[in-house]
Write a protein that binds this DNA or RNA. Structure first.
Lengths: 117, 117
DNA sequence: ATTGAGTGCAACCCGATTGTTGCACGTCCG
DNA sequence: CGGACGTGCAACAATCGGGTTGCACTCAAT
Protein backbone atom coordinates (compact mmCIF):
# COMPACT_ATOMS: atom_id res chain seq x y z
CA UNK A 1 0.00 0.00 0.00
CA UNK A 2 2.83 2.32 0.77
CA UNK A 3 5.65 1.75 -1.68
CA UNK A 4 6.98 -1.60 -0.58
CA UNK A 5 5.97 -5.12 -1.55
CA UNK A 6 5.32 -5.85 2.11
CA UNK A 7 7.79 -8.70 2.51
CA UNK A 8 11.22 -7.34 1.64
CA UNK A 9 10.85 -4.30 3.86
CA UNK A 10 12.31 -5.85 6.98
CA UNK A 11 15.31 -7.07 5.05
CA UNK A 12 15.88 -3.61 3.62
CA UNK A 13 15.43 -2.14 7.08
CA UNK A 14 18.17 -4.29 8.52
CA UNK A 15 20.51 -3.31 5.71
CA UNK A 16 19.81 0.35 6.35
CA UNK A 17 20.41 -0.11 10.06
CA UNK A 18 23.66 -1.89 9.28
CA UNK A 19 24.81 0.89 6.96
CA UNK A 20 23.85 3.62 9.41
CA UNK A 21 26.97 3.05 11.51
CA UNK A 22 30.25 4.64 10.33
CA UNK A 23 32.40 1.88 11.80
CA UNK A 24 30.35 -0.68 9.94
CA UNK A 25 30.76 1.19 6.66
CA UNK A 26 34.49 1.41 7.30
CA UNK A 27 34.52 -2.31 7.94
CA UNK A 28 32.83 -2.94 4.61
CA UNK A 29 35.41 -0.77 2.91
CA UNK A 30 38.23 -2.75 4.46
CA UNK A 31 36.65 -5.99 3.33
CA UNK A 32 36.23 -4.60 -0.15
CA UNK A 33 39.88 -3.69 -0.19
CA UNK A 34 41.26 -6.94 1.20
CA UNK A 35 38.73 -9.39 -0.08
CA UNK A 36 38.59 -11.37 3.13
CA UNK A 37 39.82 -10.89 6.66
CA UNK A 38 39.41 -12.15 10.19
CA UNK A 39 37.96 -10.15 13.05
CA UNK A 40 41.36 -10.01 14.74
CA UNK A 41 43.06 -8.69 11.62
CA UNK A 42 40.34 -6.10 11.09
CA UNK A 43 40.67 -4.98 14.70
CA UNK A 44 44.24 -4.04 13.88
CA UNK A 45 43.05 -1.62 11.21
CA UNK A 46 40.44 0.11 13.34
CA UNK A 47 40.62 1.94 16.67
CA UNK A 48 38.28 -0.47 18.45
CA UNK A 49 38.67 -3.80 20.16
CA UNK A 50 38.28 -7.16 18.44
CA UNK A 51 35.03 -7.83 20.27
CA UNK A 52 33.51 -4.65 18.95
CA UNK A 53 34.47 -5.75 15.44
CA UNK A 54 32.89 -9.13 16.05
CA UNK A 55 29.61 -7.51 17.06
CA UNK A 56 29.63 -5.26 14.01
CA UNK A 57 30.34 -8.23 11.77
CA UNK A 58 27.38 -10.02 13.35
CA UNK A 59 25.14 -7.09 12.46
CA UNK A 60 26.47 -7.02 8.91
CA UNK A 61 26.02 -10.76 8.66
CA UNK A 62 22.39 -10.74 9.74
CA UNK A 63 21.82 -7.95 7.23
CA UNK A 64 23.19 -10.20 4.50
CA UNK A 65 26.10 -7.91 3.68
CA UNK A 66 28.86 -10.23 4.86
CA UNK A 67 29.59 -13.94 5.35
CA UNK A 68 31.99 -15.72 7.61
CA UNK A 69 33.76 -18.90 6.52
CA UNK A 70 35.61 -20.93 9.09
CA UNK A 71 39.09 -21.91 7.95
CA UNK A 72 40.82 -23.97 10.58
CA UNK A 73 40.92 -21.98 13.78
CA UNK A 74 40.06 -18.68 12.21
CA UNK A 75 36.94 -17.19 10.61
CA UNK A 76 37.43 -15.38 7.37
CA UNK A 77 34.79 -12.75 6.56
CA UNK A 78 34.03 -11.67 3.02
CA UNK A 79 31.63 -9.34 1.23
CA UNK A 80 28.21 -10.30 -0.09
CA UNK A 81 26.89 -7.56 -2.38
CA UNK A 82 23.45 -9.12 -2.88
CA UNK A 83 21.87 -7.40 0.11
CA UNK A 84 23.28 -4.06 -0.90
CA UNK A 85 21.96 -4.52 -4.39
CA UNK A 86 18.46 -5.22 -3.13
CA UNK A 87 18.50 -2.13 -0.95
CA UNK A 88 19.78 0.02 -3.79
CA UNK A 89 16.91 -1.15 -5.94
CA UNK A 90 14.45 -0.50 -3.13
CA UNK A 91 15.75 3.02 -2.67
CA UNK A 92 15.65 3.97 -6.31
CA UNK A 93 12.13 2.61 -6.67
CA UNK A 94 11.20 4.62 -3.60
CA UNK A 95 12.70 7.72 -5.16
CA UNK A 96 10.79 7.09 -8.35
CA UNK A 97 7.64 6.68 -6.33
CA UNK A 98 8.19 10.00 -4.60
CA UNK A 99 8.80 11.77 -7.87
CA UNK A 100 5.65 10.33 -9.33
CA UNK A 101 3.49 11.33 -6.38
CA UNK A 102 5.09 14.73 -6.02
CA UNK A 103 4.37 15.47 -9.65
CA UNK A 104 0.76 14.41 -9.25
CA UNK A 105 0.36 16.48 -6.12
CA UNK A 106 2.00 19.56 -7.51
CA UNK A 107 -0.28 19.38 -10.51
CA UNK A 108 -3.41 19.21 -8.41
CA UNK A 109 -2.17 21.45 -5.63
CA UNK A 110 -4.42 24.42 -6.40
CA UNK A 111 -7.57 22.36 -6.72
CA UNK A 112 -7.84 20.94 -3.21
CA UNK A 113 -7.00 22.83 -0.06
CA UNK A 114 -7.50 20.12 2.54
CA UNK A 115 -6.49 16.48 2.27
CA UNK A 116 -7.53 15.21 5.66
CA UNK A 117 -10.94 14.83 7.16
CA UNK B 1 40.72 6.77 -0.33
CA UNK B 2 38.06 4.26 0.45
CA UNK B 3 35.33 4.45 -2.11
CA UNK B 4 33.89 7.84 -1.31
CA UNK B 5 34.90 11.29 -2.53
CA UNK B 6 35.60 12.28 1.08
CA UNK B 7 33.14 15.15 1.25
CA UNK B 8 29.72 13.68 0.58
CA UNK B 9 30.17 10.84 3.02
CA UNK B 10 28.77 12.59 6.04
CA UNK B 11 25.73 13.67 4.10
CA UNK B 12 25.12 10.13 2.93
CA UNK B 13 25.67 8.92 6.45
CA UNK B 14 22.98 11.19 7.80
CA UNK B 15 20.57 9.99 5.13
CA UNK B 16 21.29 6.38 6.06
CA UNK B 17 20.79 7.15 9.73
CA UNK B 18 17.53 8.87 8.89
CA UNK B 19 16.30 5.93 6.83
CA UNK B 20 17.32 3.40 9.45
CA UNK B 21 14.28 4.13 11.60
CA UNK B 22 10.95 2.50 10.63
CA UNK B 23 8.87 5.38 11.97
CA UNK B 24 10.87 7.78 9.85
CA UNK B 25 10.32 5.68 6.73
CA UNK B 26 6.63 5.57 7.52
CA UNK B 27 6.68 9.32 7.88
CA UNK B 28 8.25 9.69 4.46
CA UNK B 29 5.58 7.44 3.01
CA UNK B 30 2.85 9.57 4.53
CA UNK B 31 4.42 12.70 3.10
CA UNK B 32 4.70 11.06 -0.28
CA UNK B 33 1.02 10.19 -0.12
CA UNK B 34 -0.27 13.56 1.08
CA UNK B 35 2.27 15.88 -0.46
CA UNK B 36 2.54 18.10 2.60
CA UNK B 37 1.45 17.90 6.18
CA UNK B 38 2.05 19.43 9.60
CA UNK B 39 3.57 17.60 12.53
CA UNK B 40 0.26 17.66 14.35
CA UNK B 41 -1.60 16.15 11.42
CA UNK B 42 1.03 13.47 10.96
CA UNK B 43 0.84 12.62 14.65
CA UNK B 44 -2.78 11.70 14.04
CA UNK B 45 -1.75 9.07 11.51
CA UNK B 46 0.90 7.43 13.64
CA UNK B 47 0.82 5.84 17.09
CA UNK B 48 3.27 8.32 18.60
CA UNK B 49 3.04 11.78 20.07
CA UNK B 50 3.43 14.98 18.13
CA UNK B 51 6.75 15.69 19.81
CA UNK B 52 8.16 12.40 18.61
CA UNK B 53 7.06 13.32 15.09
CA UNK B 54 8.73 16.71 15.44
CA UNK B 55 12.02 15.08 16.39
CA UNK B 56 11.82 12.65 13.50
CA UNK B 57 11.07 15.48 11.11
CA UNK B 58 14.10 17.32 12.46
CA UNK B 59 16.28 14.32 11.68
CA UNK B 60 14.79 14.00 8.21
CA UNK B 61 15.28 17.71 7.66
CA UNK B 62 18.95 17.73 8.60
CA UNK B 63 19.38 14.74 6.29
CA UNK B 64 17.93 16.78 3.45
CA UNK B 65 14.98 14.49 2.91
CA UNK B 66 12.29 16.93 4.02
CA UNK B 67 11.65 20.67 4.23
CA UNK B 68 9.37 22.67 6.47
CA UNK B 69 7.61 25.77 5.18
CA UNK B 70 5.88 28.04 7.65
CA UNK B 71 2.37 28.97 6.56
CA UNK B 72 0.82 31.27 9.10
CA UNK B 73 0.87 29.55 12.44
CA UNK B 74 1.61 26.10 11.13
CA UNK B 75 4.61 24.43 9.53
CA UNK B 76 3.94 22.38 6.46
CA UNK B 77 6.50 19.67 5.74
CA UNK B 78 7.08 18.29 2.29
CA UNK B 79 9.37 15.81 0.59
CA UNK B 80 12.76 16.60 -0.94
CA UNK B 81 13.94 13.65 -3.04
CA UNK B 82 17.35 15.12 -3.81
CA UNK B 83 19.04 13.65 -0.75
CA UNK B 84 17.58 10.26 -1.41
CA UNK B 85 18.76 10.40 -4.98
CA UNK B 86 22.30 11.19 -3.91
CA UNK B 87 22.33 8.29 -1.48
CA UNK B 88 20.93 5.92 -4.07
CA UNK B 89 23.72 6.90 -6.41
CA UNK B 90 26.30 6.47 -3.66
CA UNK B 91 25.02 3.02 -2.83
CA UNK B 92 24.98 1.76 -6.38
CA UNK B 93 28.48 3.08 -6.98
CA UNK B 94 29.54 1.35 -3.79
CA UNK B 95 28.00 -1.88 -5.01
CA UNK B 96 29.80 -1.52 -8.32
CA UNK B 97 33.02 -0.92 -6.45
CA UNK B 98 32.56 -4.08 -4.43
CA UNK B 99 31.84 -6.11 -7.50
CA UNK B 100 34.91 -4.78 -9.21
CA UNK B 101 37.20 -5.50 -6.29
CA UNK B 102 35.65 -8.87 -5.57
CA UNK B 103 36.21 -9.92 -9.16
CA UNK B 104 39.83 -8.79 -9.03
CA UNK B 105 40.40 -10.58 -5.75
CA UNK B 106 38.73 -13.77 -6.80
CA UNK B 107 40.85 -13.84 -9.91
CA UNK B 108 44.09 -13.45 -7.99
CA UNK B 109 43.02 -15.50 -4.99
CA UNK B 110 45.28 -18.46 -5.63
CA UNK B 111 48.38 -16.38 -6.25
CA UNK B 112 48.77 -14.65 -2.92
CA UNK B 113 48.06 -16.25 0.43
CA UNK B 114 48.61 -13.37 2.77
CA UNK B 115 47.52 -9.77 2.23
CA UNK B 116 48.70 -8.23 5.46
CA UNK B 117 52.17 -7.70 6.79
C1' DA C 1 -9.04 41.44 23.72
C1' DT C 2 -9.62 36.75 24.64
C1' DT C 3 -9.70 32.21 23.32
C1' DG C 4 -8.03 28.21 21.05
C1' DA C 5 -5.19 25.71 17.78
C1' DG C 6 -0.44 24.87 16.52
C1' DT C 7 4.23 25.16 17.49
C1' DG C 8 8.79 25.22 20.23
C1' DC C 9 11.52 24.07 24.18
C1' DA C 10 13.11 21.42 28.23
C1' DA C 11 13.34 17.80 31.44
C1' DC C 12 12.96 13.21 32.10
C1' DC C 13 12.53 7.85 31.39
C1' DC C 14 13.88 3.62 29.42
C1' DG C 15 15.64 0.35 26.29
C1' DA C 16 19.01 -0.51 22.72
C1' DT C 17 23.82 0.18 20.96
C1' DT C 18 28.47 0.59 21.34
C1' DG C 19 32.28 -0.34 23.61
C1' DT C 20 35.18 -2.50 27.14
C1' DT C 21 37.50 -6.42 29.87
C1' DG C 22 38.25 -11.12 31.48
C1' DC C 23 38.26 -15.80 30.74
C1' DA C 24 37.32 -20.38 28.71
C1' DC C 25 37.60 -23.24 24.53
C1' DG C 26 39.59 -24.98 20.02
C1' DT C 27 43.31 -25.45 16.97
C1' DC C 28 47.84 -25.25 14.83
C1' DC C 29 52.91 -25.85 15.40
C1' DG C 30 57.47 -26.49 17.66
C1' DC D 1 52.77 -32.60 24.87
C1' DG D 2 52.41 -27.82 25.62
C1' DG D 3 52.42 -23.27 24.51
C1' DA D 4 50.60 -19.63 21.44
C1' DC D 5 47.19 -17.78 18.56
C1' DG D 6 42.46 -17.12 17.39
C1' DT D 7 37.80 -17.39 18.56
C1' DG D 8 33.42 -17.44 21.54
C1' DC D 9 30.90 -16.14 25.52
C1' DA D 10 29.51 -13.23 29.41
C1' DA D 11 29.25 -9.36 32.36
C1' DC D 12 29.57 -4.74 32.63
C1' DA D 13 29.76 0.61 31.85
C1' DA D 14 28.34 4.40 29.19
C1' DT D 15 26.21 6.69 25.75
C1' DC D 16 22.42 7.36 22.26
C1' DG D 17 17.85 7.29 20.48
C1' DG D 18 13.06 7.27 20.70
C1' DG D 19 9.35 8.47 23.34
C1' DT D 20 6.67 10.95 26.81
C1' DT D 21 4.81 14.93 29.49
C1' DG D 22 4.33 19.72 30.81
C1' DC D 23 4.49 24.40 29.84
C1' DA D 24 5.40 28.76 27.43
C1' DC D 25 4.75 31.19 23.16
C1' DT D 26 2.76 32.69 18.58
C1' DC D 27 -0.72 33.48 15.49
C1' DA D 28 -5.55 33.64 13.74
C1' DA D 29 -10.32 34.25 14.36
C1' DT D 30 -14.36 35.68 16.81
Amino acid sequence: MTAEPDGAVEEVGSVLVALADPTRRQLLDLLAAHGAATATTLAGQLPVSRQAIVKHLAVLDSAGLVVGNRVGREVRYSLRPAGLDATTRWMSSLAADWDRRLAAIKHAAEAAERDFS
